[in-house]
């Protein structure tokens, strides 16, 4: 199947904004992803090492004793995000195994950096009590002061480091 182009970013933005508004209107809160990822991870851990979960205060509030960490609306939203992304990908011809990376970067390097970046991101998301969706997007729309500072910090951190990592994100034509 031929790959379809991405939609106009402003149209995408309006659609995302309407989804965000619907979430606030119906549930009183916005969109999010990282808390559900946390729940999934706690659930996995709870099966492997239930005693360890009960000991960590931060995890125990989700899965201590008999609590099921997956029984949560945020996990439902995560499942939906997964399915929605998959369906859109299939319909647009982008549902195929591949590694997206800068030119001249080996797959191994890209995957190692993805894992490392994810680890840093996961830690940061818990530290700031929300990820780019839960804090920046949802908090941004309700004009939360902390969320806006957070958002500028994310951009600041990424722009600050971007120049040093430019060789990992080169576009083809500049590659040697």
């Amino acid at each position: 199947m031929k790959t379809r182009p991405y939609i106009n970013p402003y149209v995408g933005g309006v659609l995302l904004g309407l989804t965000l508004f619907a979430a606030f209107y119906l549930t009183g809160a916005g969109l999010g992803a990282s808390s559900a990822v946390n729940r999934v991870q706690v659930a996995v851990l709870d099966n492997v090492a239930p005693k360890a979960v009960d000991k960590m205060a931060y995890c125990a509030q989700l899965a201590g004793g008999d609590k099921n960490p997956l029984d949560s609306p945020s996990v439902m939203m995560l499942l939906g995000t997964l399915v929605g992304g998959m369906v859109a990908g299939v319909l647009s011809g982008r549902f195929k195994p591949e590694v997206r990376k800068g030119a001249g970067v080996s797959n191994g390097t890209r995957l190692a950096l993805a894992l490392l970046g994810g680890l840093i991101m996961g830690f940061g998301a818990r530290f700031s009590r929300g990820c780019t969706s839960g804090q920046a997007l949802s908090g941004g729309a309700v004009l939360s002061a902390g969320s806006w500072l957070f958002m500028f910090s994310v951009f600041g951190g990424a722009y600050g480091l971007a120049w040093f990592l430019r060789r990992f994100w080169r576009v083809e034509e500049e590659a040697v």
Binding site: L31, G32, A33, S34, V37, L78, T81, L82, V83, G84, G85, M86, G89, V90, R94, F95, K96, P97, E98, V99, R100, K101, N107, L111, L113, A114, L115, L116, G117, G118, L119, I120, M121, G122, F123, G124, A125, R126, F127, S128, R129, C131, T132, S133, L149, F150, M151, F152, S153, V154, F155, G156, G157, A158, Y159, G160, L161, A162, L165, W169
Partner: peptide, 28 residues
Amino acid sequence: GGLIMGVGFIIGGFCPGTSIVALATLKI
């Protein structure tokens, strides 16, 4: 936390929500 996430973003190329979508379309 925002600065940490910015660093993770440029190293890893995603944020948590977008990586779920990437995963859903089989991006390794």
